[in-house]
Design a protein around this nucleic acid. Structure first.
Lengths: 288, 288
DNA sequence: TGAAGCCTGTCAAATTCGTTACAGTGGTTG
DNA sequence: CAACCACTGTAACGAATTTGACAGGCTTCA
């Protein structure tokens, strides 16, 4: 009884995804989260799972061309039994609909391996120590990144500035570095992102800062930047990708984890600050 | 509510096969004929399939230890979904040395779930279509991001510029946007990163660009930015994190995958360019 | 042959489910 | 700012399902 035998429900949903309403998109997400099992229970159960009302489920089923919810379910069941009958359609793929060799799948595998590989190697005490440095408001924090990692550094700074004062991004132009170094003393922290094709000028910057007594912290790759010899803590990450360039997914992950841990470590000081930032950006938005 | 989680319904049936009555054995045969789909419809349908009365089905379910037919069905469904589930969902701790509750582990879990959840939802044809747009050198490409996603946008631009000419980052200051819009025509592509706390000014920018005939592409979160209605292709991603802010790990992942796919799609044009960039940056480095 | 015990189907009650109708909400347009 | 539109949830209805009670039938054994 399916309107078009050619396409699966998943396929049809993806094709229509542009024309779906908010509630329908919730349902789509819930269905894909555990496809197609989520749709095989009662209509109320499915609705509850997606946090929508029952009629919304019905409306989606009709939008997809079915006469009612039971018809929708029957189609799901027949898809499923077809799929179970040829066990060749095994599910090791990440992006369900794309072939194994699709770049989304090869990239996802690499990202997963990078993340789990990085974490297996990671010294969580070094991580905690770095968080301790970041959470200490008596210290100024500078973050530096190279040509590629600069964006990650900027991302970290944007978030860290919301969590505490005294955070700056080292500009990518070496000519202005002296202006930053002059204000650096032995209480301050310099966090470097330095991965493959290590930048010699970053090493110089680290050396100068070290001479002024600053604490050097390093996020690097598994081949380890020369800055490591100047750093109190170094965290090596896996960054391989099936691409012409390395992947910075794990460095970004680490940046986010550092921010979250820093916020946790000084929550009573941070809470008010975050609330205040919310207020300011709201009023700015209204002002426009 | 299965009596013993350890065994499957099929298992239990086989063990009890000696004590089954004639009607129950019919049901068992019908169920095994296409397991477990036959049991997932209505109780009447199942009974008819086995050529037995409805109450016989109920009696079998109770004999197996279930409270009723729905409970029996739910067990079948959960068996099936466990069988189809991606094995990656299972994890012990990621960071071996740290406790489960350490932020590295909770963050890693969230990141993995975000990534696999995003991929399940993703329409790979939309991805391929976007790659097609990016690989087309007749089109200029502009990338825009908000306060937070600006860093991701910058990262994408940095890489895309190495792959092809005509790529620009939209500055974060709206006042200069007209200078960019003036050079935009119907061949051009505007890629937006817009996630939660959607920026109204970004929507305005998208609308203006759309009026000029530009092609709008959107990377957003699962709640979907209003820009979606102006976009030719929208890709929703999961971005939840145990933190005060959302995670941009998956958006970065997508940016990297887009770059890699774009390079692949036009490798013969790109190869020389990348080599040349290498040469230039080497000589610049030596010149310093 | 008759009686007891178990099995199975019919029937009807109760519950749950799917569906429709309607009203409230938020956003947009003139 | 009002009128409109699209979307979503609440509530009520009707339908289908699940379930319990009952009775007929088959087998077994005295």
């Amino acid at each position: 009884m399916p309107p078009q035998r050619a396409t699966t429900v998943a396929e049809r949903l993806r094709l229509m995804s542009g024309e779906l309403t908010a509630a329908e998109r919730k349902l789509m997400a819930a269905l894909f989260a555990n496809y197609p099992m989520a749709g095989l229970g009662s209509i109320t159960g499915f609705a509850r799972e997606a946090d929508v009302s029952t009629p919304s489920v019905l409306r989606l089923a009709k939008k997809l061309g079915f006469s009612g919810f039971p018809a929708f379910q029957e189609e799901l069941r027949s898809e499923l039994s077809a799929q179970l009958q040829n066990p060749i359609a095994k599910h090791d793929r990440w992006a369900a609909e794309a072939p194994d060799t699709h770049i989304l799948n090869t990239f996802a595998t690499a990202a997963m391996e990078n993340l789990s590989g990085s974490l297996k190697l990671m010294d969580h005490r070094a991580f905690d120590a770095i968080v301790g440095l970041m959470a200490d408001r008596k210290r100024k924090v500078f973050v530096a990144g190279g040509r590629i990692t600069g964006a990650i550094a900027a991302y970290l700074v944007t978030h860290l500035q919301m969590a505490r004062p005294g955070v700056s991004l080292m500009p990518s132009t070496p000519t202005v570095w002296p202006q930053y170094l002059i204000d650096t003393d032995k209480n301050d922290v310099l966090l470097f992102f330095d991965i493959r094709r290590y930048d010699a000028r970053m090493l110089d910057l680290a050396a100068s800062a070290r001479e002024r007594g600053a604490t050097i912290v390093l996020i690097t790759d598994q081949w380890i930047s020369p800055i490591a010899r100047l750093a109190v803590h170094s965290i090596p990450l896996r960054i391989e990708a099936p691409s012409s360039w390395d992947s910075n997914v794990v460095p970004l992950f680490l940046a986010e984890a550092l921010v979250a841990a820093t916020v946790n470590a000084s929550w009573h000081e941070t809470e008010a600050r975050i609330a205040e930032i919310e207020t300011l950006s709201d009023s700015e938005r209204r002002g426009k």
